[in-house]
């Protein structure tokens, strides 16, 4: 049974969309681009990053545009001061924890809402050593924003390989293999999908990275070191 279409306004412009349309999709129809980090068309949307939050009718909570469905009669503000404060603060807090130097889309989102990357100068960053444990890709979790996409495509969103998990909790969460074994010891089949969906430089194709460093392909493959040891607690 098809539900009735929904009419609402986004940034003052009225439009009608099919029931079930997300605010992100409705805004896109009007040419309004709402920034996203975790959302990806190929993965299940979990509403993690909250950079896409918008103000719906001045409600108690801001709504994540990527998963919130359009409601009839709603008035959505994608860029009022309230929505921008949360968007800006999330990006400022993220920049204090993560190396975003290879995440141009996030840097653009920061510029768009005038986020200050130095807002939290004494903050503890998530610093991790580069992991080089297989011939195909490198893992630099200092650049990981915890969008979960790699874990999702490794599991039910695509590959059903289950090589990856999230370890730890809160700010200290990290993408990991079981007991931090190397990728070659893990069930990883090196399908490459995790690298494909990574929004930052956390997962890098090794050959591309090596060529950028001025290495020949043979040299790059010979770089793989011994399996990594478990990190300190």
């Amino acid at each position: 049974m098809a539900e009735d279409p929904v009419t609402l306004t986004v940034d003052g412009v009225e439009l009608t969309v099919p029931a079930g349309t997300t605010i992100l999709e409705a805004a896109a129809q009007l040419g309004i681009e709402i920034p996203v980090i975790c959302w990806h068309e190929a993965t299940t949307a979990n509403g993690l990053c909250r950079v896409c939050v918008v103000d719906e009718d001045g409600g108690r909570l801001l709504q994540p545009a990527c998963i919130a469905e359009c409601r009839a009669g709603a008035s959505i503000e994608t860029r009022n001061e309230r929505a921008l404060r949360s968007r800006r603060t999330i990006l400022e807090m993220l920049a204090a924890s993560v190396d975003l130097s290879e995440a141009p889309e996030i840097e653009a989102a920061m510029a768009d809402c005038e986020a200050d990357a130095q807002r939290f100068p004494d903050a503890r960053a998530r610093e991790h050593e580069l992991i080089d444990d297989n011939p195909f890709y490198l893992r630099d979790y200092s650049q990981c924003v915890l969008c979960w996409r790699c874990v999702q495509v490794c599991a039910e969103d695509a590959q059903y390989t289950f090589a990856l998990t999230l370890d730890g909790r809160g700010h200290d969460t990290q993408v990991a293999t079981a007991f931090d074994i190397s990728m070659t010891e893990s069930p990883c089949v090196f399908c490459g999908q995790c690298v494909g969906v990574c929004p930052t430089g956390a997962l890098k194709p090794k050959v591309e990275w090596g060529l950028e460093q001025g290495l020949a392909p043979d040299e790059i493959r010979s770089l793989t070191r011994a399996p990594r040891r478990r990190r300190e607690e």
């Binding site: 979990n46 924890s97 969460t173």
Partner: peptide, 20 residues
């Protein structure tokens, strides 16, 4: 900071920044 699950960014990052 200790009990944030880490799922959404505002709490995962905000509880850490608040403590600092």
């Amino acid at each position: 900071q200790h009990e944030s699950c880490g799922k959404c960014f505002p709490c995962q990052l905000g509880t850490q920044r608040q403590l600092e």
